[in-house]
Design a binder for these strands. Sequence first.
DNA 1: TGTACATCAGTGAACGCGCGTTCACTGATGTAC
DNA 2: TGTACATCAGTGAACGCGCGTTCACTGATGTAC
Lengths: 224, 224
Amino acid sequence: VRMCGVSVTPQRKARTRNRRGEGGLLREEIVAAAERILEREGTEEAITLRAVAREAGIAAPSIYGHFDDVNAVIGAVLDAGFARLAMRIKAATDGRDDDPIALLLAGCRAYVTFAMAEPARYLVLFGRGRAPNRPEPSEPPEPAGRPAEHQLDAFQILVDGIAACVAAGRSASTDPFRDAVMVWTHMHGLVSLRQFAPGFPWPPLDDLLTDTVLQGAKIKPASP
Amino acid sequence: VRMCGVSVTPQRKARTRNRRGEGGLLREEIVAAAERILEREGTEEAITLRAVAREAGIAAPSIYGHFDDVNAVIGAVLDAGFARLAMRIKAATDGRDDDPIALLLAGCRAYVTFAMAEPARYLVLFGRGRAPNRPEPSEPPEPAGRPAEHQLDAFQILVDGIAACVAAGRSASTDPFRDAVMVWTHMHGLVSLRQFAPGFPWPPLDDLLTDTVLQGAKIKPASP
DNA sequence: TGTACATCAGTGAACGCGCGTTCACTGATGTAC
DNA sequence: TGTACATCAGTGAACGCGCGTTCACTGATGTAC
């Protein structure tokens, strides 16, 4: 690289090569680099092959040793994101199986907290517009909307949480699945619009969330 | 343009130039071309200056006669989208000012119908991730989240609709603004997640929407 | 223990592409005299 | 009515950039004999 007649070395630090059997280490570094870019730039489009290589301190073609192409890198970021979300929810609900309502609220708060704390990651997980291109007739029936197992995990926790309230006589729900859909969609709308329009005079998120969950799950007032 | 030794003329149709005072006509054609691209490709990133020029059948630099840069074109698409949404809502609610609940439901149905019928447009209006870049300290306090007047128009209709139900004794709402926030966010979540994950076993949208509006606006059962 | 060699992990240079933007221009259209 | 000219609407060629991907390569590391 040459600028103004002065030879400039690209400021990539000389990477110490992994040892013989440890090539897989770089794979994790690549995903971590992509996640850092996502976090920093706030948009999925910033995750380009060359940007990831720069961030990871490697040459661009090195990525091909670990991923088929750039989409595979983004896919790995998605998988890591869903795993992270499920982990957060489980961490918030583990070891407090006393009150089913408290459990349900804790899980929902963990979901919303994740979305607000890592908006770029959340947006990639749930906000990506599946380009509604004219459906290629020759295309195999692709798995719609990336239901990567962890996504369903999180939703199942919600359904179970409502069902537990019903079992404890604390919810009037007759269809926990449907009510979980209502709670999930409402939570998603709350966080994604709030991120979209931060200048709007939003009421406090905690209050709205509590109402969303208690009403959506048809929680009955505590019987005396 | 030359391919395989054969001279190929770019298949842009020879555009008949606008007459002297009618240069503004092209501006509308440019916006219309950008909207067609958005509709067809389903993603905002497809709206590039060159793609718009191709779609409009003009040379790329011709756009600069009507817009400062490519972002201005996208801004015009946004404005047109918000205007279109407000128009749809008004069309659905005009001339049926009899029952405030029917009015409220009609407006909300128009919102959801717009979002489902033109998902790409809707996504651009409400789903764009404002890149949460580290806030440039030198930057002027930008209008947050593009509150283009028509957007607030639509929300105000919702607030007024709930207030009208209260005035008619049909709603128990004590804070129409807050309840409008609840209805708006829930509607947004319903449509955007449904578009994101079309393979999910969603319950019928109409049913969910009706519940969303009636519960969110705290509509009381009709008094006998 | 020594040495030839296969393998592994990663590199540097190059390709063709579409992009946003600039620049000097062209040719029709209306206007001043 | 005729003609020179300013203006308007839009063009074609070119620039530099970052991108995804390919190709032949390099040099350290472990292994077979």
